[in-house]
Write a protein that binds this DNA or RNA. Structure first.
Lengths: 205, 205
DNA sequence: AATAATATCCCCCAATTTGGGGGATTTTAA
DNA sequence: TTAAAATCCCCCAAATTGGGGGATATTATT
């Protein structure tokens, strides 16, 4: 029997989810909580396989809650269920240890599928969320930088010095300087940190 | 009618996919190619909505091919279909512009669903692939670094100098130096670049 | 209550790095 | 055949970095 917990402050939503999930044969709701604080106190006894987690919660929110719960139960699968499709929140949730992120308007059958998927080592996500995640890997192809400049800036962003970059690219240190001068001009910046910041923000590197 | 292209060097697999996809009402296979070179020459006429892409191809492989095709048709949805679950390849494919990544043993019905999902702005992935992607956002909680040290190293990795880090954390420059000394000791390194490299590799930052 | 870990700040010093200025030449692409 | 990109060169001053030696106050943790 797979053990599920629900952390959601809205009583109606929480008990609705609980009833729905309990109606599935292989699932058993072993705890429902309105706050992370309460959940954290009781979770060691519940030992759930999956936790459904709201983000907007009184006290500790769902992001911070996920971080703490993952410390207590590193193996647990946390699925964040929220109305927010804000990209910041998505990445914060994933960084905090959530394995899935689905929006609250998801039909019930997909919710059940998502729990099964999480338990089977998957990462259930609403399709637009998944796309956001995938796109976060892709670079901006409208970069003003040449490929060599991009390469240099990437190494610079890894903390390498001009000397080391020169060695790794088999070019002279003065060439590296030259590239960096051009990078600074193109990005309209005057230091390493500014260049890296601007390039990261625009996904040039 | 949604337009699909297939790039796959194995004739049997390629024509099998084509027949399968063509049998779906809303899909039309507008091109099947054994190499990226051939595809790139013809794609501007095909204007496909979705491309199914193999990775192992003679000549230009599927990763490099995705990069080039995305330059020609930035809006196209590329789904990589491969036997490889190697994490390196997955991230390379996503960086190259693929929106999905599914393994070749996927049942036909899920393949069709994946194409629909890609077209509707989703990111179809096999469940273990999706989990790999999600886990790439999560930090290693077995870090030897304190939270303050992690914070300092994160800023260092963004190219910030001791002075700037001190300002941003509202502490003295000497305190930053002190933290960095401890970071170097704990990571057994002797420079910024080494520290960042080791921390990134171990996902401490 | 005692110990250890963490976070904070201080000084000295030498080598390296960085950024800005001025070039030049060759290779590659449009 | 132009323009852009990539390569290399010199000069110089300010800033950064890394290593050495500390100290003190605040938090855990036992």
């Amino acid at each position: 029997m797979n053990r599920i917990c629900i952390i959601e402050d809205n009583d109606v939503v929480r008990e609705g989810f609980a009833l729905l999930i309990d109606s599935v044969n292989e699932f058993e709701v072993v705890g429902t909580y309105a706050t992370c604080e309460e959940a954290i106190r009781k979770l060691k006894d519940d030992i759930p396989d999956v936790i459904l987690m709201d983000i907007e919660l009184p006290g500790i929110n769902g992001i911070e809650g996920s971080t703490r719960i993952k410390k207590l139960l590193p193996e647990v699968n946390i699925i964040v269920i929220t109305v927010h499709e804000n990209s910041e929140l998505v990445f914060e949730a994933l960084c905090a240890g959530a394995c899935g992120y689905i929006t609250k308007n998801t039909e019930y059958s997909r919710l059940i599928d998502s729990i099964k998927e999480a338990m089977n080592g998957g990462a259930p996500m609403s399709s637009n969320i998944a796309r956001m995640v995938v796109e976060s890997f892709q670079k901006n192809q409208n970069t003003p930088l040449t490929s060599r400049e991009t390469q240099v800036l990437e190494l610079l962003s890894k903390g390498k010095s001009y000397t080391v970059i020169a060695d790794e690219l088999f070019i002279h240190k003065e060439t590296v300087k030259s590239h960096i001068k051009n990078i600074y001009f193109k990005l309209q910046v005057h230091s390493k940190a500014e260049a890296i910041e601007k390039a990261l923000k625009n996904k040039f590197i």
